[in-house]
């Protein structure tokens, strides 16, 4: 995380590479994160833009951070919530993930069987994910997509440490069960071939 501290400080002292680095390293995640709150792409884009404008305008007076990702996520959440509240929409009313596309860099090199296997797994896991409550999906996103620490998750979700851990493990168990069930099925399928 010391890298983050350096880049953040470079950004504060107006080095342009730092802005570019921060933007391009986190933009995908920020968009994905934004979509958890709203399907309105323009709203998300505006919120992200405003977030970066704020950063640039106030760069000298920004606080320190050694986790830029967390800093950005938290700021974006605040921005989006503010906008949504203004629009009289409540948070989590419209949530997330309809049909994720799993594009992969390696896809053209995989052979067909491998890809089918992977896609099957992903379909299963997606089904499992959709069975979870929005809150559980949110925590999985923080923990495994954003790789946040528990203290950071507690901060951003306003929950306590032990409940954060409990939620993560409950969500993971569901996903694991979905997979194991299918492994058994596959086993029988292969046997009957």
């Amino acid at each position: 995380m010391t890298d983050d501290r350096k880049i953040w400080n470079d950004f504060k002292s107006s080095k342009d590479y730092a802005l570019s680095h921060i933007y391009h390293h986190h933009i995908d995640l920020l968009f994905r994160y934004g979509r958890k709150f709203s399907r309105d792409e323009d709203l998300i884009k505006d919120a992200i833009q405003e977030l970066f404008f704020d950063l640039i305008r106030n760069r000298e007076s920004l606080g320190d951070t050694d986790n830029i990702r967390f800093y950005l996520l938290k700021s974006l959440k605040n921005k989006i919530i503010k906008t949504l509240q203004k629009d009289q929409k409540s948070l989590h009313q419209v949530t997330e993930i309809t049909e994720p596309k799993f594009s992969s860099v390696y896809s053209h090199e995989e052979d067909l069987i491998e890809r089918e296997n992977r896609e099957r797994n992903e379909q299963l896991l997606l089904k499992g994910l959709n069975e979870l409550s929005p809150r559980l999906r949110e925590i999985l996103f923080y923990r495994f997509t954003c790789e946040l620490d528990y203290p950071e998750i507690c901060d951003i979700m306003s929950i306590r440490y032990d409940s954060a851990r409990k939620m993560v493990f409950r969500a993971l168990r569901t996903l694991r069960e979905v997979l194991s069930a299918s492994d058994i099925m596959l086993f029988f399928l292969l046997k009957s071939c």
Partner: peptide, 13 residues
Amino acid sequence: KIILFLHENGTNS
């Protein structure tokens, strides 16, 4: 499998 799935999860921008 679960880690890779969760890591990639979500549409690309």
